[in-house]
Nucleic acid binder design. Structure first.
Lengths: 215, 215
DNA sequence: CATTGTGAACGGATTCACAGCC
DNA sequence: GGCTGTGAATCCGTTCACAATG
C-alpha cells in the first residue's frame, strides 16, 4: 500500500510508536494490540489503528501487531532505515547540549558538521566533532548531501543562517532560535521553542481562577 | 470581557504574539494591524483577530492594535503579569543549558530550585543557583508555593520524579524526558521532545520520493 | 472471538464574508 | 476607507460503530 498524504498530527505520533516498540522489543514482547499501545502512548486505540492504516495494513486481525515487523515498517516510513546526516549551526550552551544529545542518543542520525560564527569556538570539540567556521558550511553540506539542519543561534542571525542553509540545499530545519523563520514552501521547519512551551504552560496554572481581562 | 475557554492551539500562539509585540515596542512601533502581525507570525490575520477576540476586544476598528496595550493584555492573559516560580529537576548537559537559558533569557520566570539525584552535582552552581538534592524538593516547592516544574531527567526515573512533583503540588510540567508521563487530569504536561521533533522532520525529507511501504 | 481496518458521524479549529465601527 | 470583530461555512482530524478476518 502506498503512502497517502498523512496529516502532520499523524507524523508527529509515529516516532512515539517507534519509541514504544523499541522498549517492547527490548523486553522481548512480540505482539502488541492497539489497546495496549493506547495505554502506553495516551492516544486512543482507534487513532493508532487509523494512523498506521495511512501507510498499510500491518496488523493481524484477532491478534495485534508484531512488534519487530511494525518497528521495521515505521523506520522505513519515517525514513530512519538509513542514517540521516545532520548539520548543526550555533554552539552556545544549548547548542552544545543538543548536539551532544544527538550524537550520543540518536542512533538514526549522524552529525556531519558543526558550525558557529564565533571564531573562539572554531576547532573546539563536541564529542569528538570539531566546530567549524560558517565559511565551511556550504562545502560540508554539499560533500555529504545533507538535507537536515538544526539551528541554535540567537534570534537575530537566525534568518540569515537559514537563508544560507536553504541556498545550499537544506530542506528540513529544526529551529531552536526564538523567532519565526521565513523559508520557501518546499522547506520544512519544526520549531522547538522553549519559551513558547513554558509560557503557554504557565497559562494553565491560572486556568481555574476565573478572572476578567477587560479592565 | 471574561476568559472563555480558548482552544489549546490558541494558547500556543499567544506567546508568539507577545514576542512580536516586544520586538515592535523596542522599535517604537505603536500601532499594528492584524495583517502585519500575520506577516510577522505566519498565522492568518483572521486567525489572529479570532484568537484575541477569545479574551476581549483589544483593537480599534479602522486602525489596528496598540502594541503596548495589547502586550499588557497578553501578559495578563497568559499569566506573566506576575513572576512565575519554577523548579528544575535534572541537570545533565541539557538540563544545565535549559536552566541557564531560563535564568538569563526568560524575564517572566524565576528559578527557585534546581535538583538532581546525583550527589556529585549537589552544591555545584548554575548561574549562581545551587543544585540541591531531591530530598530538599518538597520543602522548596512548599516554601515558594511553586506550581511549575521543568524536568530534564532520563526516561527511566521521569515518572517517579513526576509523581513526587505532583504530590507536592506542582500542576504544570515542561517535560524534556523522552517518555510519556502519567499524571492526574488536573496537571498539565507539555512535552518538548527533541527526538520526536527531529524524527518527524526527517519524514518530510523523503516526502516527494513516492515510495511503497507494503513490500 | 478478539482485534484490525475503515466508512460515517462528529466536533473543533480555520477560513470566509461581511457587518460594525473609528 | 480601512481594519476589527464575528456568525456562517468549510475543512480536517478524531471518534464511533461495525464489517472483515485470522
Amino acid at each position: 500500500m502506498s503512502r497517502r498524504n498523512a496529516p502532520k498530527s499523524v507524523i508527529k505520533r509515529l516516532p512515539v510508536y517507534l519509541r514504544i516498540l523499541d522498549n517492547l522489543i527490548r523486553r522481548d514482547v512480540e505482539i502488541i494490540s492497539s489497546r495496549v499501545l493506547s495505554e502506553e502512548t495516551g492516544f486512543t486505540a482507534e487513532q493508532i489503528r487509523k494512523d498506521l492504516a495511512y501507510f498499510g495494513a500491518f496488523g493481524t486481525r484477532g491478534t495485534g501487531y508484531n512488534t519487530t515487523y511494525l518497528r521495521e515498517k515505521l523506520l522505513r516510513i519515517i525514513g530512519l532505515d538509513k542514517e540521516t546526516k545532520l548539520v548543526v549551526v550555533g554552539v552556545g550552551h544549548l547548542g552544545k547540549a543538543l548536539t551532544r544529545y544527538n550524537i550520543t542518543k540518536n542512533p538514526y542520525v549522524k552529525v556531519v558538521g558543526i558550525f558557529d560564527a564565533n571564531p573562539k569556538e572554531h576547532g573546539s570539540e563536541i564529542e569528538g566533532h570539531k566546530v567549524m567556521s560558517m565559511e565551511e558550511m556550504p562545502r560540508v553540506i554539499k560533500e555529504h548531501d545533507v538535507k537536515v539542519a538544526m539551528i541554535t543561534v540567537p534570534a537575530e542571525p537566525a534568518q540569515d543562517v537559514v537563508d544560507q542553509l536553504v541556498e545550499n540545499g537544506i530542506t528540513a530545519i529544526l529551529n531552536f532560535a526564538p523567532t519565526k523563520l521565513h523559508v520557501p514552501e518546499e522547506v520544512h521547519v519544526h520549531n522547538a521553542d522553549l519559551t513558547i512551551e513554558l509560557q503557554s504552560l504557565i497559562y494553565y496554572t491560572l486556568e481555574d481562577e476565573k478572572k476578567n481581562y477587560a479592565e
